[in-house]
């Protein structure tokens, strides 16, 4: 089975993000692999362990994609790690576009059976890339999944619904986005990281993507801090909330 995993990186500490003259300044940011992508890599590696002979390729499309991101995917068990080098990507559409192009370049006509992506990147939280990528590859999409069982031909998936759970029967090919709860990503020790460093990182250059569909116009730091009104006793608190009209809707 051929499995492609799309990974990206996010700021380790969001507080290191700065805004200068209405534009984002990410120069002081330390990057880590997007936590949702760790579930995707872990699930890919588990499938590879279940079905020997499978090949897992991790792709990262981010101009800042550091070596560490790709090496982490290799240390977790990916067979190959590919950096998709492009101009700065301005929206989810462009990100999905360069990933789709890279997947087509790597796999040719035989697209991978499975493409795994994290549910969303924790920095911008659009959660659009997996579904857009599926559309561009002409593959069906589902997610975010919290359980995945495969017998090699068919898949049983679970995903959260509003106020419940959906069970889905599916077959390959498929694009799946991964949710917390799907697995517990393995920790990578010194040995795995040293092994990963021996493997070569691949770079492919993306073409110039089509225009973005959404543009960032400006950004500002949020420094809002509410002034908390403290109550001394639960009775006083209940009184304050009542006065503020917060129980109005309760009996309606």
């Amino acid at each position: 089975m051929n499995i492609a995993v799309c990974i990206c990186q996010v700021p380790d500490l969001p507080s290191s993000v700065a805004v200068v003259d209405g534009a984002l300044d990410l120069s002081r940011v330390a990057w880590v692999m997007n936590p949702y992508d760790e579930y995707a890599v872990e699930e890919a590696v588990r499938l590879k362990e279940q079905f020997p002979g499978s090949v897992v390729i991790a792709l990262a499309a981010a101009p800042e994609a550091g070596k560490e991101l790709l090496q982490k995917a290799l240390a977790m068990g990916a067979d190959r790690a590919v950096e998709v080098r492009s101009l700065p990507l301005q929206d989810s559409f462009q990100a999905a576009w360069v990933l789709a192009e890279a997947i087509r370049n790597i796999y040719g006509k035989e697209l991978p059976e499975l493409v795994l992506c994290g549910r969303e990147s924790l920095d911008l939280q659009n959660g659009s890339v997996p579904a857009m990528l599926a559309g561009m590859l002409g593959m069906p999409f589902t997610g975010p999944v919290t359980a995945l069982r495969s017998d090699g031909e068919r898949l049983e998936l679970e995903r959260e619904a509003d106020g419940g759970m959906e069970c889905i029967d599916a077959c390959y090919p498929l694009v799946i986005s991964t949710e917390k709860g799907l697995n517990i990503p393995r920790k990578t020790g010194i040995r795995q990281i040293m092994e990963a460093r021996k493997k070569s990182l691949e770079i492919i250059s993306a073409s110039v993507p089509p225009d973005p569909l959404v543009r960032l116009r400006s950004a500002e730091l949020v420094l809002s801090r509410k002034s908390c009104c403290f109550a001394a006793t639960p009775a006083e608190l209940a009184g304050l909330l009542h006065q503020a009209g917060l129980f109005k809707t309760v009996q309606e």
């Binding site: 969001p14 993000v17 543009r215 116009r217 500002e220 949020v222």
Partner: peptide
Amino acid sequence: IYSGLVLAAYQPA
């Protein structure tokens, strides 16, 4: 965006 620390304005294109 960024954990609620930045308020961004996006424009449809």
